[in-house]
Write a protein that binds this DNA or RNA. Structure first.
Lengths: 231, 231
DNA sequence: CGTTTCTTTGATAGGGATCAATCATGGTGG
DNA sequence: CCACCATGATTGATCCCTATCAAAGAAACG
């Protein structure tokens, strides 16, 4: 069953397949299978939702990356958060009528969405699910705190170094990490310009700190990178 | 019953007096009266909790203002959030073992704190309380998004103008708004330096945009200020 | 291949930081 | 009550980081 809905490829979604819900007890897990949910596939061009639009769904990212961003009055985009597989986004609907930011995949992304009304219909099991969501939300808040420190108190090279370190965090040494962001997106994430990001990359490549190929990056000297990130 | 505890003035606290909990149903409200909670009074010098310290309490701000801030490796402070009366802070304990930021009153502040273990002991009523906390947390997240946009995509005068507007938001025109922040604290909130903040103030005073006395401020031309904030 | 989009690189300028000194302000003790 | 000191705020001069403007180069795409 495939339907075209607001730019996403729609199909029935087995919510319980998501690692996210594995934290729940088995009976709740079972309960959740009865909840209606949709699976959607997006390409990089399609937006998942726009800021200001009616917020009716909570999203689970199954695969890929999604950028959440706000646009200022003068037209600049600030990327708020980069969602990775297994994470939730679009909390707004639980509290507010509209999304306060926009969501767009970095490349392709497959998500699962649950209507807020369905979440509310979970009955006695709802509290358990809400507790889970609350926990995720608090984690996001902590993450946002960290980013505020980055943007408010650090200079360009510290920001970029910090970003690259966290981006490559899970990758083993001497392995490539796919870099799905364009220079523009990195700049929008760090509150810098394309040129500044490009220049830092160029410098660090000359210094042998990082290497880059098509859509992948490798930090050759993490401790040196950590030095640049801190000071 | 008055005890000295970690820099705060301790006394028994009737949790149910807080507007925060008025959103709850009456029976839960009643239930909460049985929960142990402490009221604490702080002066500006005393810190409520330090980043990295064991997070065992959730705080309700009863009166005054509290700044939450992180300190970077090079010693700079970034104020993450300014808590106002009626708001909650210190979510970390619900999910994590440590606070990820520090909390210090701007001037005096009286707070009520509830131990996380007591929150968990609320039994069947806990879900209602948790839902309330989740809602507040999501609001904070939205607020953090807005601040990321400010710090990442706006210049000094836009940030300060935006800050002053939101600070004086609830005040009627031609009325004074108490400005409990020092220049340094405003700077740390906006990711600027004392000097930059001071110069903007001086300029705007010359232009007749704002007036200031001892610890209070008044925006004379809000629409003009809004113009400076946007562009 | 040619065309479009992204990236790099260079030159320049400007916003805000930094350094430094003076000026208020408030608290303290004589 | 006033002189004194400490802390915070203002103002000025200068510098540097990053944005901006501009153009060439590389990569992606039909």
């Amino acid at each position: 069953m495939e339907l075209q809905v607001s730019g996403g490829q729609l199909k029935r979604c087995p919510v319980h397949e998501f690692a996210f819900f594995n934290e729940l007890a088995e009976d709740i897990h079972h309960m959740l299978r009865c909840v209606e949910s949709d699976a959607l596939d997006y390409t990089a061009a399609e937006t998942i939702y726009h800021a200001g639009v009616s917020a009716q769904h909570l999203y689970l990212l199954h695969d890929g990356y999604v950028k959440l961003f706000k646009t200022s009055e003068n037209g600049k985009n600030q990327i708020i958060r980069i969602v990775r597989a297994g994470e939730i986004f679009g909390f707004d609907g639980l509290v507010d009528v509209r999304y306060n930011h926009s969501a767009v995949p970095l490349k392709e992304a497959s998500v699962c969405r649950i209507a807020v009304v369905n979440l509310n219909a979970l009955g006695v099991f709802r509290p358990e699910v809400e507790r889970l969501i609350m926990a995720r939300c608090i984690r996001e808040l902590q993450h946002a705190d960290e980013r505020l420190l980055e943007l408010g108190a650090k200079r360009s090279q510290e920001r970029l170094a910090g970003f690259l370190l966290s981006w490559c965090e899970a990758t083993q040494v001497n392995k490539w990490t796919p870099l799905v962001l364009s220079r523009l997106e990195i700049a929008q994430f760090l509150g810098l310009t394309i040129e500044t990001v490009s220049r830092l990359f160029a410098q660090w490549k000359r210094d042998g700190l990082v290497v880059e190929k098509r859509q992948a990056i490798q930090i050759l000297d993490r401790s040196k990178m950590a030095l640049l990130a801190n000071n």
